[in-house]
Simulated scan of single mutants.
Amino acid sequence: MIRKLTDQDHDQVLAFLSEEPSINLFIIGDLEAFGYSSEFQEIWAEFDEQNTIKTVLLRYHQSFIPYAKGEFDTSGFVSIMKKYNQPIFLSGKSDIVAKFEAFDDLILGKKQVTFFAECLTDEFLSVNDNDVKIKKASLEDIDQIIELRRSIEEFHMRSDARDILVQAMESNTARTYYTDEDGVITSCVSTAAENSLSAMIVGVCTRKEYRRKGLATAIMQKLFQDVLEEGKTLCLFYDNPEAGRIYKRLGFKDIGMWTMHR
């Protein structure tokens, strides 16, 4: 049986998701921040005969994230997703997303597969010895952050990226640290989907003319230290082997593959 969840289901769904807190940080973070009754967010679950959750599907704006343990009623969830505008933005563990990809009538966005890594320790972090001045962004900095991200070839920016960043900063589910020169942001690193257990590192970017100066690395060290000191696990995606080597030097370890259709 699949049904939409309400506040009364929170303890049960959180217990289900917390068995893999890093993999489920987006769902956990969105539920903690926006609950079960907002216009832009909904969550459904499939229950077994013992009324135990076996699968969940979160909708956040145009994006869907499924999570399951074992087999589940994929066609039932596809029927729900098809009620919304297509193409569908879908992301999750690669083996789970693959089950949705088998449905030809579900129009999905462009596919990207990345490594999923997590960091549990700050023992590999070094002190910022380049005297780089790092600042924390406010709402006034959002347009510059979006402009910088749009200038990065590898980034796939959604049309509603600014609205989502504003909402995330206002709800304290995201933060951005940056460096600047003469009031212009030169490099920045952000978190997303921050919750009581974990935080995702996103948007690591530097203007072309300021690269290879160690700016992004210095920002990451500061951001990682602050988040880890709050008792949270750090997670990130990467598909660039060179970036992967940098992250692993900072203490990250691969824990799986993640597929995004956007």
Rank of each mutant, 00 (worst) to 15 (best):
N51Y: 11
Y177T: 05
E194H: 03
S171G: 08
G231D: 13
F47A: 09
N24I: 13
V227Q: 01
Y36H: 08
L25C: 14
I43N: 00
I142C: 12
L197I: 03
L120N: 10
M200Y: 09
E39H: 04
L90G: 13
V78H: 01
S18R: 11
G109P: 00
I146E: 06
E19M: 15
D30P: 00
V113S: 10
K111A: 14
D131G: 13
R3F: 08
S75D: 15
Q112T: 15
Q86P: 09
L14P: 08
R245D: 13
T206Q: 08
F40D: 13
A218K: 00
E209L: 03
A98L: 08
S37D: 15
R207N: 14
V97Q: 07
Q41S: 13
D9R: 07
R162V: 13
T191G: 10
L125W: 03
F72A: 10
G76P: 07
A137N: 07
I88G: 01
C235G: 14
F72T: 08
I23K: 10
E170M: 11
I2D: 00
D239T: 14
D226T: 13
E140A: 14
G70F: 00
I28G: 04
S196Y: 01
S79P: 03
D30S: 12
Y36G: 06
I107M: 12
D104M: 11
S196I: 12
I134C: 05
S196K: 07
I80H: 00
Q86C: 04
D141R: 08
S138Y: 07
N128S: 03
N172Q: 14
I43R: 02
Y36K: 07
F77L: 12
D180F: 14
A192F: 02
S63Y: 10
I201S: 00
G35F: 00
P21D: 11
R158W: 01
E42A: 08
D30M: 09
D160I: 05
L215D: 11
I53T: 11
T259S: 15
G214N: 02
G70R: 01
W44G: 05
A117C: 08
D7T: 09
A243F: 06
A117R: 08
E147C: 04
V132C: 13
Y84D: 12
I246H: 02
Y178S: 02
T233R: 05
R249G: 09
K99P: 10
G183P: 05
E118V: 14
